[in-house]
Amino acid sequence: MLRDDPLFYVVVAAVLVVLAILMIGIGGFAKGGEFNRKHANRLMRYRIIAQAVAVVLILLFVWLRRGMI
């Protein structure tokens, strides 16, 4: 079962981190102003890095769990 697998929770946490960064970036873009000018590029870089980590973790999870049903 997926709930018994600690790697599943790591993958979920990584995806939620990506979602949080994305929501902060979208909120800053929508609001505009000083926050967006100051942090937009940094948030984009953080999102891309977090997304890459999440994809690697998802692939690792699938690779380790394939055929173990």
Rank of each mutant, 00 (worst) to 15 (best):
F35M: 07
L60A: 03
Y46W: 08
V10C: 13
N41P: 06
R45F: 11
A50E: 09
L7V: 11
I26G: 02
L60K: 06
G67R: 07
I26C: 07
I69R: 06
D4K: 15
V55M: 10
R42P: 01
V17R: 01
G27W: 04
L16I: 11
M44D: 04
R37H: 12
R42H: 11
V15D: 13
A20T: 09
L22V: 08
R37V: 09
R42T: 08
R37F: 07
F35I: 13
M44W: 11
A40S: 10
A20M: 09
A54L: 01
I21C: 05
K31I: 00
V11M: 00
M1K: 11
Y46E: 04
P6I: 14
F61N: 02
A40I: 10
R37N: 12
A40L: 11
K38W: 05
N36T: 03
L19C: 10
A30E: 05
L16W: 09
I58D: 01
A30Y: 04
H39Y: 10
N41S: 11
A52H: 10
R42I: 06
G67C: 10
F29M: 05
V18D: 02
W63M: 04
D5I: 04
L43N: 12
L19W: 10
A14I: 13
A20R: 12
F61V: 02
L7M: 13
D5E: 13
R47Q: 10
L64R: 03
V11S: 01
L2S: 14
M44F: 14
I48E: 12
M1L: 13
G27I: 02
F61I: 02
G28N: 08
K38P: 05
D4G: 15
L64W: 04
F8H: 07
A20D: 05
I48F: 08
M1W: 03
K31S: 01
R45Q: 08
A40R: 10
A54N: 01
F61C: 00
N36D: 07
R37P: 02
R45M: 15
W63F: 09
Y46D: 13
V56K: 09
L7D: 06
R37I: 03
V62P: 03
I58Y: 05
L16T: 12
G67Y: 04
F35V: 14
F29E: 04
V15E: 08
I48H: 11
R45G: 15
K38H: 12
P6H: 13
I26Q: 06
L43C: 08
V10N: 00
N36V: 03
E34C: 04
V11Q: 00
G33F: 06
A50Q: 13
A14Y: 13
I24F: 02
R45A: 11
G25P: 01
G33K: 07
V10Q: 08
L16V: 14
D5H: 03
R66T: 07
L60E: 05
